[in-house]
């Protein structure tokens, strides 16, 4: 069994590293510091931690001001409340003036589980991606999250980091290299490519080995950097495989699947199948049951691959 850790957990740890390295790093939360894992930073650096209470608009607005005055704020809450409640603060107070705010959002997607549809952000990537100046990052495991958080701190400008509640398998070691704007080809294949991010990456890898047993050669590409998107790699891979499946824990409208389709549509028209939530809200339930119910599984990816292969042959 692979080790498992939630991306939010890795975020909390990375913040401690940043706190020690850079006195300009400050952290803000909105009464969810235990869940978003900013609580350890709060304990270690209380003078650099600001709990804004249950007030997300004020959370993001204050982060904008801190950035305008030279700090590197990491503002955390659940994805639904950051992107949802504070959208226009993000758009006009952070992205428009290109301020150096890191929106570190946890509890994205349906793997939020029992809290239900009201708490499961399934449209946050679409919304953040549509905002000029915004960088959108969706790490797949603990190690990638660590690197994403450090890279976000290095980068000057607004970054949206999408993380999850659920423990997910550790996929990468320290030799792994995340870079903003770069996709990572995890596995090279010739028949079809699965381009995934977040919790779907580990399933993509599993689907690829199952398909290998069936004689299908699958490329797996981890697209953690949804924006900027690594168009070069995506086009190059699509040219070889001539069939692409995208996979994300997000609505199929506006997320990774859309981003890939936009690029391929213009530069390398390729048969595609998008795996994601089929324009529906989630509901309460155990995270793994919900992934099953909403078709975010290895089996569903295998099915999607066969579907896209059939399109390719037409």
């Amino acid at each position: 069994m692979a080790n498992k850790v939630a991306t939010r957990e890795a975020y909390g740890k990375a913040l401690l590293v940043l706190g020690a390295e850079n006195p300009n790093v400050v952290v803000l939360d909105a009464d969810l510091s235990k869940s978003t894992k900013t609580a350890d930073f709060a304990k270690k650096y209380p003078e650099r931690f600001f709990n804004m209470g249950i007030a997300e608009a004020n959370l993001l607005g204050t982060a904008a001001g801190l950035a305008a005055a030279g700090k590197i704020p990491f503002a955390s809450t659940f994805a639904i409340f950051a992107v949802g409640r504070a959208f226009e603060q993000i758009r006009n107070s952070i992205a428009y003036p290109k301020l150096n705010v890191k929106i570190a959002a946890t509890h994205s997607g349906i793997t939020v589980g029992e809290d239900g549809g009201s708490h499961q952000a399934i449209e946050d990537v679409a919304i953040m991606r549509a905002v000029p100046n915004m960088v959108v990052l969706v790490p797949a495991d603990g190690e990638e999250t660590r690197q994403v958080v450090l890279a976000a701190a290095q980068y000057k400008g607004p970054v949206y980091i999408r993380m999850g509640r659920l423990d997910v398998p550790l996929l990468f070691g320290e030799e792994y290299r995340f870079e903003i704007g770069k996709a990572n080809v995890l596995k090279k294949g010739t028949d079809v490519a699965i381009m995934a991010n977040g919790v779907m990456v580990s399933m993509a890898l599993e689907a690829a080995s199952e398909l290998a047993d069936q004689g299908v050669s699958v490329s797996v590409v981890n697209v953690a950097s949804v924006k900027p998107l690594d168009e070069e790699t995506i086009v190059r891979i699509a040219k070889t495989t001539k069939a692409v499946v995208t996979a994300e824990e997000h609505n199929i409208i506006g997320g990774l699947g859309s981003a890939v389709a936009e690029v391929l549509g213009e530069k390398q028209p390729t048969p595609m199948v998008r795996v994601g939530l089929k324009d529906t809200f989630g509901e309460s339930g155990r995270p793994l049951e919900l992934l099953e119910k909403y078709g975010l599984t290895k089996a569903e990816l295998v099915k999607a691959v066969h579907e896209v292969l059939a399109k390719k042959q037409r």
């Binding site: 409640r85 809290d115 239900g116 549809g117 009201s118 309460s284 339930g285």
Partner: peptide, 23 residues
């Protein structure tokens, strides 16, 4: 999963709930 009573009130699913809330 699949049951009526959501983690937070859902007026579409539960009779007697007048407004969906949770945020």
């Amino acid at each position: 999963t699949g049951h009526m009573l959501q983690g937070h009130p859902d007026m579409k699913k539960t009779p007697g709930v007048d407004m969906s809330t949770g945020s």
